[in-house]
Write a protein that binds this DNA or RNA. Structure first.
Lengths: 192, 192
DNA sequence: TTAAGATATCGAGGGGTCCTCGAGTTAGCA
DNA sequence: TGCTAACTCGAGGACCCCTCGATATCTTAA
């Protein structure tokens, strides 16, 4: 087995892990998050058994693949409060998450499932995204409708990610803009 | 082979077709639109070959399964102009489509793909939905933002269907409400 | 340098799935 | 009661997931 790096791995293991990640990225890009793992292993020049030794599940593979991306996303999310007005911070966050969750075809669905599945290797990351969203929504209270919840914002963001995957990124952007207008509008319309 | 009913089918064929549809509905309900066709055939008490004789593809099976639903959806869509204000007609339509496209897990994605694939057995139906949407959007011009396109509305609707599948119907409703608020809001806010 | 032991790799194999197609069966007409 | 067109069957090839015992390789300490 190969940990994430806690204990120094054997040289061949480290090499194979890298090759697997490269092949997986390519496979996911081309065939979406449900790409054949056997093909990925073959492409990496490694047996299917070795793939499973390194990544015991598709989730684990995806999690490793997304690690770097998630790290920079969280960094952004943590830096946003203070840098912009609360509403702009929220909008920026939503756009960033939507772009992220559409990195591979099927990823939006994959991540939503992970958020609802404590056992998933991706659960912690999804929960963190949810927490950042909550914070940004709280900060924007007053600018956005009082009845708008963080769940609403997350749902809109995920839906935009799905639209990005399935339709186009420009359509997803329009959806997000539309929803953002809706988020602001409260009964006594606030000054634009 | 068994047509849609143009020429009268043999009694056994008609019986098997019904059984297959029943089993497919059950299977799709339980496992989503990607449910195993072999299992569906088994459940229907029929061989896999017979399933393929009746429905040459998963799309064809889904199309047959959705026919009745689609018919009543189109009936609604065609009756809407005139019955309500243009904006309410549009909102009603969006809710109906979103509810429809979430009948089975994975259906929203399935339908979006069908809209973009002329060869799909579901293409015509999806195109018809798009046409109805266009008409309702045109009718609502003036009430909704001038820059809002029928594509935008369709995208929002599909996204809501996906949310319904993946999260919950109440969350999908909230998303739709939010988006509808965004649809109305134009720079000089119209009277509510 | 070498040999033991920990670590990693391999791939056959069981259980699924999709879909095709030649051979066998049957409904329904004459 | 045939006959035939219509229908059904299911083995089989190609692919996929995942496991696990056998095998190979790296690393370290003597």
């Amino acid at each position: 087995m190969a940990g994430t790096g806690a204990r120094r791995m054997r040289a061949d293991a480290r090499r194979n892990r890298e090759r697997l990640l490269t092949a997986a990225d390519e496979g996911f890009r081309e065939h979406g998050v449900e790409a054949s793992l056997e093909r990925i292993a073959r492409e990496a020049g490694v047996s299917i058994g070795t793939l499973y030794a390194h990544f015991p599940s598709r989730q684990a593979l995806a999690a490793a693949l997304l690690r770097a991306r998630h790290d920079s996303l969280f960094e952004l999310g943590d830096s946003l409060p203070g840098e912009w007005s609360a509403i702009d911070a929220l909008a920026t966050w939503m756009r960033a998450v939507a772009a992220h969750a559409a990195a591979y075809r099927g990823l939006a669905t994959f991540l939503v499932n992970a958020l609802g599945d404590e056992a998933s290797e991706l659960h912690a990351e999804c929960a963190r995204m949810a927490r950042i969203t909550e914070r940004l929504v709280d900060n924007a209270r007053g600018t956005i409708g009082a009845k708008v919840t963080a769940e609403d914002v997350l749902a809109v963001t995920n839906a935009a990610a799905w639209t990005r995957e399935q339709v186009s990124s420009s359509q997803a952007d329009r959806l997000l803009d539309l929803a953002l207008r809706g988020l602001r509008a409260v009964t006594p319309e606030p000054p634009l």
